[in-house]
Design a protein around this nucleic acid. Structure first.
Lengths: 244, 244
DNA sequence: GCTGTAAGACTTACAACGTAAGGGAGCCGA
DNA sequence: TCGGCTCCCTTACGTTGTAAGTCTTACAGC
C-alpha cells in the first residue's frame, strides 16, 4: 500500500538489480527526511517504519546511523535549531547591544525563533517531552544570555529572567487548545452554567470580532503581549540593578 | 511477578470462589487508583494493564467504566482539579476582591493550584498532551477570570492576560531540565566552548550557592519571579485602562 | 580479475501497548 | 424458575520500538 511496497511489487527487473540500486543512508539524510515527514504528516506519523519507508529502506537500517528513536527526535530538533540560527542571522550577540537596546534585540531574536517553530509546530512537543537541549538549542540560549549580558544585567537577574520567559525563550508557548472552532452558541450557553465569567468573556470576544473564530487564541499578538510584559518587567529590574 | 499474578498463583480456593469475591469497579475508583498509580510509578507506568493490576482486575474490564485511555487521562486531571478546588477553598471569587487587591488574590489562587500540581507532577504533561480542559479545570479558569473581572479589568485585557500567564494559570511552568545533577566542572568546561555566556552564568550561580545543585532551576522562587513579573505588567495595564 | 573484509541493508522476531470481539458468571425483576 | 442485563474475563489483532542474526555490496590488496 505504501509507495515503497508498490514499487517493490511493481516493475522491478530482478531481485539483484533492485539490490544494486540500494539506497545509501546517512545520519543527516535520515534527519532531514524525518523533518519533512513530521512537517507533512505530523509527529505521530514519525515512526521508524514510516521514516524508513520515506527513505526507501527497511526500518532497522536506520539503526546503523542513529542509535534509537530518541536520537532521531533529538536530531530533528537540532535540525530545526540550525534553521533558527540562519533565520536570526547567527546566534552571536549584535555588536551594538547595550543597556538601551537589549530588549528589542532579545525580542527580535525570540520572534525569529518563533517564526521557525511555526513552520515546524511539532518541534515544541519534542522539546517538552525530552529533557536536555542539544548543542544548537544550547547556543541559541547562549545567545539570549549574551544579549542580556550585553545589556548589563547581572547573571542572577539573567538567570531568573530565563526561567520567567520560560519556553518563550524558544519562541513558543503552550497552546491551550488547538481544536480550532469557535464555541457555538449552544456550547456557550452550556458553558455559562459551568463557567459564567469565561462564557461572558468568550461572548464578548466573539461579538467584537466574529471572524476570529478561535484564531483569537495564540495569535502572534498574544505571544507578543506576553513577551512584552516580561521584557518590560525585566527591564525595570535591570534599571533598578543599575542604580545600585 | 506482579503482586496480582502472585496472588492468583498462590493460595486461592477455587476459581469459583475467586469469582464470588469479584471486585466491583466504578469510574471513580478507577480514576482514584490511576492517580495513585501515576503518583507512585510515574505517567509512563500508567498503562491499562498496570492499572487493571492495581485494581485487581483484567485490563479490558476497565472499558466498562471508561471508554478508552484518553478518558482516563482526562479523568485523572479532573480528579487533580477537584483537589485544587479544595486546596484553594473553592473556585469562587473572594467577596472583597477589587481593583486594589485582585493581584494578590490571583497570586494566591495560582500558587494554590501549583501546590497541588507539585503533588502530581505528571498532571501537567497530560494537560499539555490533551486539548480541552474538563469541567473542573474550566471552573478553575473561570475563577481566575472572575478575580480579574472583580479587579475591574476589561474582558479584552483579561483575555490577553490569560494567554500571557499561559500555563502559569494552571500553576506550573514547563521545566527545562529535570535531570537533576549540577553540571560537573568537566561538563562546564566543555560547555564553555559551545556556550560561553551560559557557562559563565552557571559557574557564577554554582559559586554563589554551591548547595543548590540544580535546585536553582524551577524553584518556587523562580515560579514566583515570573508570576510577579506578569502580574505587575498586567496591573499597570489595568490602571491605564481605568484612567481612560 | 579475484577474493577477504567490513559496512550497512534486510529479515525475523519479541515484548508492550491500546483495544475490538465475544464468552460466561452473577444478580435482579417477573 | 427463568430471561436478560451487567460487567468481568479471555483471546486476539495491529502497531510500536528494537534485539539478533543473515546476506549483500563496495572496496582493498593481491
Amino acid at each position: 500500500m505504501s509507495s515503497r511496497s508498490a514499487e517493490r511489487a511493481g516493475a522491478q527487473p530482478t531481485r539483484r538489480a533492485a539490490r544494486t540500486e540500494r539506497t545509501r543512508l546517512s545520519r543527516d539524510g535520515v534527519l532531514q527526511t524525518a523533518v519533512r515527514l513530521a512537517d507533512r504528516d505530523g509527529l505521530d506519523a514519525l515512526t521508524m517504519r514510516a521514516l524508513a519507508d520515506d527513505l526507501g529502506v527497511e526500518a532497522m537500517s536506520i539503526y546503523h546511523h542513529l542509535p534509537n528513536k530518541n536520537a532521531i527526535l533529538d536530531g530533528v530538533v537540532e535540525v530545526v535549531f540550525a534553521e533558527v540560527e540562519s533565520e536570526v542571522g547567527g546566534f552571536g550577540v549584535p555588536p551594538t547591544t547595550d543597556a538601551a537596546n537589549w530588549a528589542p534585540a532579545l525580542r527580535e531574536r525570540i520572534l525569529g525563533a518563533r517564526r521557525v517553530l511555526l513552520r515546524h509546530p511539532w518541534a515544541p512537543w519534542i522539546m517538552n517531552a525530552r529533557g536536555a537541549p542539544g548543542p544548537n538549542a544550547m547556543r541559541h540560549i547562549d545567545g539570549v544570555v549574551g544579549i542580556m549580558r550585553a545589556g548589563g544585567m547581572s547573571f542572577d537577574l539573567i538567570h531568573h529572567s530565563l526561567h520567567a520567559i520560560g519556553s518563550r525563550v524558544y519562541g513558543y508557548v503552550q497552546e491551550l487548545s488547538d481544536d480550532g472552532d469557535a464555541p457555538a452558541p449552544a456550547q456557550l450557553e452550556q458553558l455559562a452554567g459551568l463557567a459564567p465569567n469565561l462564557a461572558a468573556m468568550l461572548a464578548e470576544v466573539a461579538h467584537d470580532d466574529p471572524d476570529s473564530t478561535l484564531g483569537w487564541c495564540d495569535d502572534q499578538t498574544e505571544f507578543e503581549f506576553g513577551l512584552d510584559l516580561l521584557l518590560e518587567g525585566i527591564e525595570r529590574r535591570r534599571a533598578a540593578e543599575a542604580r545600585d
